[in-house]
């Protein structure tokens, strides 16, 4: 069940983001289709993370619209975006360092829990049941990403690769329809990269659309069917890995113009 459903899950529509005079993202438009692995690539400073921040509401776009599952989410607050079903990881891992791996993933389920202040204060049966469910689900997710042996370890004490995996588990805990991964393979060995690609495929097989930023062309080419290339905030190419690889502007952006 990969690309048979062609309906867009996320539409980025003429999005521009300015910081003062600096245009970080310049009139970018593309669709992410339901069930696919979609990649956003580009050299350093191309505006990839800024675009992620725009989608997730951390820094709303200056102009343009973001449409998720036919609903406009431009300017929604980050927690609203997450509740609607977009989860993300961060380029420079942002785990809750002094919480256990288990608690990190349990926190990810926060917006899917219904216990109110009253339930928490008096530990009502509803609260107990929900906590049990959330714990079970958290352990399931830790297993899914393959770090269950670190369940009770503080996040900061996990090895680097496992921290990236924990971040993915935490994001999956929000039960997203769309998962944004910001350079998930950064700093990985080739072996780890292969394992990560396997994990990404597993996530998609579970019905979650994956939209990832990657710096390493090889990872992207191997994992995704469709790619958008940003350079200096502008979209310079879009298409299959082959199309992008042979695109003159992409080659120039990555290798510099040969004059």
């Amino acid at each position: 069940m990969t690309v048979e459903a062609a309906a867009p899950i996320l539409r980025v529509d003429h999005v521009t983001k300015r910081f003062g005079g600096l245009v970080a993202v310049d009139d970018v438009t593309f669709d992410v289709k339901k069930g696919e692995i979609f990649a956003l690539i580009g050299p350093n400073g191309a505006g990839k993370t800024t675009l992620f921040n725009g989608i997730t509401g951390i820094f709303p776009p200056t102009t343009g619209r973001v449409i998720f599952q036919d609903r406009e989410i431009t300017g929604a607050k980050p927690h609203q975006v997450a509740t609607l079903g977009i989860a993300r990881t961060f380029q420079n891992i942002r785990l809750f360092e002094y919480m256990s791996a288990l608690d990190n993933v349990r926190l990810g389920q926060h917006c899917r829990m219904s216990a109110k202040l009253w339930d928490s204060l008096f530990k009502t049966p509803l609260e107990r049941r929900e906590e049990r469910r959330v714990t079970d689900r958290a352990i399931e997710l830790l297993k899914f990403v393959g770090i269950e042996r670190y369940t009770h370890t503080y996040a900061r004490n996990l090895p680097y690769g496992s921290q990236r995996r924990l971040e993915i588990a935490r994001a999956l805990a929000t039960n997203p329809a769309l998962l944004l991964l910001d350079e998930p393979a950064a700093g990985f060995t080739p072996q780890e990269k292969v394992e990560l690609m396997g994990l990404v495929h597993k996530i998609v097989d579970n019905g979650v659309t994956v939209f990832l930023i990657e710096h390493d062309m090889k990872v992207v080419m191997g994992v995704s069917r469709r790619i958008v290339v940003l350079d200096h905030g502008e979209k310079i190419a879009e298409g299959t890995p082959e199309q992008v690889r042979n695109d003159q502007r992409v080659i120039e952006a990555y290798l510099g113009k040969q004059h």
Binding site: T56, I58, K77, P78, H79, V81, A82, T83, A87, R88, F90, R94, L95, F96, L107, G108, H110, C111, R112, R170, A171, A173, T174
Partner: peptide
């Protein structure tokens, strides 16, 4: 920021 991105209304 991370808490908000995980759906917590900070």
């Amino acid at each position: 920021v991370a808490a908000a991105a995980m759906g917590v209304n900070t």
